[in-house]
Amino acid sequence: MERIDRRKRQREWFRVGDCDVAWLVPLLLLMGIAAVDLLTSEQFRIVSWIVLVPSIAAALCGVGTTVVFALLSLVTYVAVDTVYPNQYRAGNADFVLVALGGALAVIAAEARARRERREGHMRDIAETTRRTVLRPLPPGWAGLEHAGVYLAADTDARVGGDFYDIQPGPHGTRVLVGDVQGKGLGAVETAAALLGTFREAAYHEPDLATVADRLETRMYRHRGHTAALGRYDGERFATAVLLSFPQREGDTVEIINFGHEAPLAVGPRGVRPLPGTERLPIGFGHLTEGLAGGAADLPSADLPAKVPAEALAPELHPDETLLVVTDGVTEARDRRGEFYTLVRELDRALARDPGRAAPKRLVRTVRDGVLRHTRGRLADDTTVFAVRRMADTSD
């Protein structure tokens, strides 16, 4: 998992090696004001500008450092001002100004420190939530080579409605990648509900179509529960791609597409979309002729009883990687409003280096391309997930 942390990058400007040198900025300002005041004539006094020093410290440094600069500003003011004859001294009024400015700077630094601690706590909670929803996947999990990147558009929240997971089981290894409509905790809750159902159904159900039906049922149950709690947030839905790598020998992969961008087969021969059984987004199944059975507890009594469609199983060559992205990639725009052309960029990258089809390199290529195209200004949460069967190294 990777993310963008603008605040951390901004702090890097004030580091030399492992040392934070932000205190150099107010120190140089203090020395500069004192030097200019001493080197100019009595008619040009700027010693009272020292009031700016603790304010700068409050913006860049901690509370303790700000207190030091507030006191140092007072001492420097008195030392510089007493050099001049009485008739040219700035006097007590400016001394009070510097003292008051230092006190206000310390208060501001303390308020900023409290806010940053609170934001840090919220980021830790969001990080824990993200790891709960998007659990870490072991390398080579279930015989699949995989890689995934999640980039949150809201860098403070670090979590949104994008989700993915791999679930091995007795009927093959299933993969789910999707995007819940909307943002905020409601989207996160929906993603967690779908992933929980996927992990159980993908393990137990022999048919991928039944797993898809269970996801549809879970969405209706979840919406009914939130509505009963008084938190009805509209007809929330999710687009997703549901995959299955059967245990039987062969290079086929079963695909059910819930209104998502088609998965791409990426390999040395280029990029091609893989067809799959097309369904409406998860949550809109009542608009077609079918929904999984066992829906007696759903709020709508007139929901259909069964979806008969089976998953299509196109061929995936051994040297091809299956790539699934969310709309954070397909709808990424630059400053001129032009979309990121994923297929064209991948074709160019593969032409230069066919080895980029490996999952880790492929995910890194797409991630870097999107960030470069948008200049780091993501308009939506972005997920890039790549997976393929691991090469059989047995004799």
Rank of each mutant, 00 (worst) to 15 (best):
M1A: 04
M1S: 00
D5H: 05
K8P: 00
R9Q: 06
V16W: 13
G17L: 05
V21M: 04
F44T: 14
W49K: 07
A57N: 12
G62K: 11
V63N: 09
T66P: 10
A79F: 11
V80R: 05
V83L: 08
P85I: 12
N86F: 09
Q87D: 11
R89W: 10
V98Y: 06
A113W: 13
H121Y: 09
R135Y: 06
P136W: 12
L144M: 03
E145W: 08
A147G: 01
A157V: 11
R158A: 03
G160V: 06
G161D: 04
D162W: 06
V175R: 02
Q181V: 05
Q181E: 08
Q181L: 05
L185V: 12
A187T: 10
V188T: 11
L208P: 13
T210C: 05
V211Q: 05
A212W: 09
E216P: 05
T217Q: 12
Y220Q: 08
A227I: 09
D233W: 04
G234P: 06
E235C: 01
R236E: 05
Q247K: 09
Q247W: 12
Q247A: 02
D251L: 02
V253N: 02
E254L: 12
I256E: 01
G259V: 05
H260R: 01
G270R: 10
G276N: 09
T277L: 11
P281C: 12
G285A: 15
T288F: 06
E310T: 11
A311N: 02
P314D: 03
H317P: 11
P318G: 06
D319T: 14
L323M: 15
D327T: 15
T330E: 09
R333V: 15
R336N: 14
R348W: 08
L350N: 10
R352G: 04
G355F: 04
R356E: 03
A357L: 08
P359M: 01
V363T: 12
V366K: 00
D368K: 00
H373Y: 06
L378C: 07
D381R: 02
T383V: 12
F385T: 03
A386Y: 04
V387C: 01
